[in-house]
Write a protein that binds this DNA or RNA. Structure first.
Lengths: 203, 203, 203, 203
DNA sequence: GATGAATGAGGATTCATTCAT
DNA sequence: AATGAATGAATCCTCATTCAT
């Protein structure tokens, strides 16, 4: 038989590995329906695979969410490190980190929804969220602050961890706010204003 | 039979109205088990009422969550307004708002858990969360900022809404971080440091 | 509305308690479909209750099987003891026990099927089967034999436990054979012949 | 690549044919997990073949069970016939048949488990069990009895079929009892006592 | 107002079987 | 002959909600 069997590919492109297709479909479905309401069969359909196939690649619905979180965070940290590689001035490093956060999530609304909403379903997940890679992220910001304080460009009477959490908190709120707003403004547009606030303060 | 039947009252005092007992039980059970895993029967047991009784006072499980949120926010805003009543200096008003936020949630861990975790279960809830009373809360902070800018004590090149969201974002992150941390430090202890950061900035 | 709502009662009579109706329905459905192929919903339908109702009375499908076994054995032992109450001659006691076994199961084919087939689904169940009440049953026969040996009416060179197991094995095989045979002969008709064999032997 | 790839051969030796390896693995896995809980993939792994390979030799999971039963019974009957070949005295023939039964199953616990437990999963299987080769087995015993009665060494007032079933029932119970007992006594040790009971009776 | 027994819809997961390679 | 990745049908149980008492 010479005819090429063309299969429907609702969510992703052919050629992509099944694992990737499933993961992408999960992000989309979780974003659309919410984790608890999302049906595994819906994800399977969106990925163009059979229900059972998902269990060849993942341990179950929850593993899907954990994996999304883990891979996203890893990618995020890697690209952030790359962007910071050439920049040494602490002030500039803060600006880049802020912009990078907003750009990354601003580029993929479904991922942002999963990141801001679905990943925080339970204390258990929140703990995961905070103890693992997010801790690394906060650690990166904290080090920028510490460095800046050591160099004398940042005030020394602020606790670096508190600053790191604050930056994260602001960014987190901006992303959430952006997700919920109907308007289609670019999330990263706020990067400079946020940096100004953090760096210069209200007074 | 003359003997008075004494029923166990696990969560609340008997004097309290049934409605209050149910609401308080819901906060506790939601905090302990998470919204989706919480069983209505568990809440009923904790409140010392029959399952069906809950439906005399509320429309269902979801209504419990909505009501908790609504009443908490209303109480919160009322007490914040009282605290701000006598204070006119914008800087001081910011400080009071920050401290009030941390004190209120720092006083009731279960409520904090529900507020930080359970209320954000879905985009739908997040929307509710943002559009309603939270909007009022952000509005209050925004007005403080606007006032301060009008008086010339706050810099004028920061968008008031952005500042309001930032303050909220920082506080939100602090509360979440506090919930997840094992240590039993007082949440409100960080109020001054946060105010310093917001007011003075890093530089 | 004055009309009395008449509900279908496929398996059992109204008036019977829900618990009894469910148990009886389970015996029938297990006998018809086999334990593993039996659907809980099928049992519910046969009992005239909702699926969930079964879980108000039992822990699950397996508990249904265990309960059937337990209650059947208890009833069986009680009625056997009653029948033996007035009989003292060991030979006669053996005859009564044999007849009672065949009559009890011969009266309820579905129960016999569950007893002979479904209760032996797994080593685990077989163990349950053997260690618990069945042990009591074997114990009763063993004591009859011991008594007969003490009185000098039974040969003393046969181990009472072996005899008890043999009697049980013969009866068990007869019941199984009866279940599988198409012919509708009365099971208890074989009681005397079996007793003769056990008592007199082949020679 | 010159190195010989040595594969693990959990259950059987490599020299054995694939078909034999699969069958032996099935006996072991059925005995260990029970028929319904046994996974085809587990059998495949134990046999050192791919899942799909099993379907080249057998029609499916059920066919494995049927085949085990059939081959076991055929082997059993053949070896029984050999053992009986030189023996003419009815009494002795009965003794040999009894010992042979206990020795055969006492030699292979997994096979005994499958034979006593797994083969009786359903009425359907029980029917198979009884109508086919087991019928031949019962037939062999029945003929011994008939012969003995014709020769005048066995009592004539016992129905040969009933005696055959009784012998089978006793042996069956002994094997089951042996499987379930923790103690490691030899099953065949009971052969003589059983023969005595059957031949001489209790009285 | 209160009760709590009863309902029944809904879904994650398993695993025997297939078939392209 | 052999593989093993992929399939997808099939079901037990939970629990929010109702309503007769």
């Amino acid at each position: 038989m010479a005819r090429t069997q063309i299969q429907p590919q609702p969510t992703a492109f052919q050629g992509t590995s099944k694992r990737e297709r499933i993961l992408r479909a999960a992000v989309d479905v979780f974003a659309r329906s919410g984790y608890f309401n999302a049906k595994v069969s819906e994800i399977a359909k969106a990925a163009g695979v059979a229900d059972g196939t998902i269990y060849l690649y993942f341990d179950g619905k929850e593993d899907l969410l954990v994996t999304i979180f883990r891979e996203h965070t890893r990618n995020y940290l890697q690209s952030l490190e790359q962007q910071l590689a050439d920049i040494s001035r602490p002030e500039e490093r803060i600006r880049v980190a802020i912009r990078h956060h907003l750009e990354t999530l601003g580029r993929d609304r479904a991922l942002a929804v999963v990141s801001q909403v679905e990943l925080r379903h339970s204390l258990k997940f929140m703990g995961l969220f905070s103890q693992m890679e997010v801790a690394d992220y906060l650690g990166m910001i904290r080090k920028i602050v510490e460095h800046g304080q050591a160099e004398g460009v940042f005030r020394r009477n602020l606790h670096p961890t508190l600053v790191a959490k604050s930056v994260f908190g602001i960014l987190d709120e901006m992303v959430t706010s952006w997700i919920l707003s109907e308007k289609e403004h670019a999330l990263a547009d706020q990067a400079d204003a946020i940096a100004d606030l953090i760096l210069t303060g209200l007074l």
